[in-house]
Amino acid sequence: MRTYLQNAPWWVFSILQGVIFGGLMTVLELHEHPERSPVGVVIGGAVQGIFFGAIMGPLMAWQRRGLSAAAGDLSTSDTRTAARAATRGPVPLDDDVRHAAARIAVHQLSSLSRFRWVGLITFGFVFALSVVLAVASSPRWWATSVVFAAAFVGQLWWPRHLQRRVDLLTADADA
Rank of each mutant, 00 (worst) to 15 (best):
M60G: 03
V12W: 02
N7W: 00
T87E: 12
W158R: 11
S110F: 07
A100E: 10
A85V: 15
G66K: 06
H31A: 14
L120H: 03
D78Q: 12
P139M: 02
W142R: 03
F51V: 15
W11L: 12
T144R: 01
R164H: 10
R140H: 04
P38L: 07
R164A: 12
R114Y: 13
V41A: 01
A61H: 03
G18F: 00
V126F: 09
I20Q: 01
V47F: 07
A171L: 10
A128W: 07
A171M: 03
T122W: 08
F51K: 08
Q48S: 11
M25F: 07
A150W: 09
G154S: 06
L169A: 06
A83W: 04
F21W: 11
A69S: 05
R2I: 15
A134I: 12
R36T: 14
S14Q: 05
P139V: 10
L74C: 07
L59I: 15
F51W: 06
T87F: 11
R64H: 07
V146Q: 01
A128T: 12
V91T: 15
L162M: 01
Q48A: 13
M56H: 05
A71Q: 07
R2L: 13
T3S: 02
S111E: 11
G40S: 10
G18S: 07
Q17N: 12
R165E: 12
S77C: 04
L16R: 08
V126N: 01
A8L: 08
V19D: 05
L133W: 02
H161G: 03
M25S: 04
R116H: 10
M25P: 06
A150M: 12
D94Q: 11
Q155Y: 14
P159L: 05
L109G: 05
T87Q: 11
